[in-house]
Design a protein around this nucleic acid. Sequence first.
DNA 1: AATTGTTAGTATCGACTCGATACTATTATC
DNA 2: GATAATAGTATCGAGTCGATACTAACAATT
Lengths: 188, 188
Amino acid sequence: MSSNNLYNHLERLSELLRTDLRKSGIGHGLQPVQLEVLHYLSVCNRYSDTPLAVTEYLGQTKGTVSQTIKVLEQKGLLLRRTDTEDKRVSHLGLTAKGSKLLDRLVPPPMLTNACDNLSKKARIQINNALQQLVMAMLKSNGMKSFGVCHSCRYNGRSADGEYYCNLVQQRLSVDDVQRICREHEAAA
Amino acid sequence: MSSNNLYNHLERLSELLRTDLRKSGIGHGLQPVQLEVLHYLSVCNRYSDTPLAVTEYLGQTKGTVSQTIKVLEQKGLLLRRTDTEDKRVSHLGLTAKGSKLLDRLVPPPMLTNACDNLSKKARIQINNALQQLVMAMLKSNGMKSFGVCHSCRYNGRSADGEYYCNLVQQRLSVDDVQRICREHEAAA
DNA sequence: AATTGTTAGTATCGACTCGATACTATTATC
DNA sequence: GATAATAGTATCGAGTCGATACTAACAATT
């Protein structure tokens, strides 16, 4: 009953956003999912830029994601390089072209317009609510949170005060800790 | 920038919901969109149960919606009858089978689980935030709001105290005013 | 009453999605 | 060194979705 009400809004929101994304992308031959992948790659960190991470993030199968990535690569919107330590894994990154296109198309106009019509306070409230809902959905279904390193329990400081990840045991730059990570676990 | 943050959460939410819907429906041969159409028909009023209304609600083209409806009809999940006054328009309604199936599949488990893990207060806040965002998106893009009659500027009372719609100039039942309407316009 | 225009909806097509299944290559484990 | 696990690819088929072109019913105008 309570989740039913929520569902009403969420479903519509989701469908409207998708349609708008589709309209944005179509002029450039891009599908909604493709824009989502590009967007993910623009906000993830260097441990999370692999096909598998995209798979976990989107909740699709690896086969599906593999195809999407292939197309984006062929379009020259992203580049892949094989990991130096584990030759099974690829790292993906936007090309300048991909990055530029993403900036123009995302967020789609409908959302941008909506935000222009909302007060700053309202935007913050909505943002918090959405975040809370995403968290709840992920947590209650045993999925990865993909939070930023900054809020991760593995995030610490090295002896000289630099950011340090206790999981992968490496230093993180200021840029790193603001990106989302597939290994993220909320601090206790 | 502010809309960018919002977009992060919204896009993920949207994708997760869709994937979950897909998983729910697949066992019964139903696609996400098909479930969305069934759901819409379960909450709309008798002036809004036409293919065109579905089209406006989902933001797709009428051709696309026409196909979806055709499939649902063939599966025996919805029934159509031609309008008595205007033979161009069809009215759609769930069959008992469709209604039963919908109850089992929507909302999808991921959302239900999430709600179970949230306090009542949090659910209300999230619900309000989502509603506000949907409204803003629709309004700033000149789209129809699809609100419930109860909150509509055309909604009034007839001489004997019954609900009355000043647009279509007809009485509305207690059930009617709780359903969403394609002619809805927010009260001033 | 015939003409023209609009509205509701359908039919068909092609590019694309997405999961399922089966596969390869590399790394981990015992 | 054999086996299992992991990261990813290839292929296929059912289905989505917009574009285009269409029909049928109604509305407006002369």
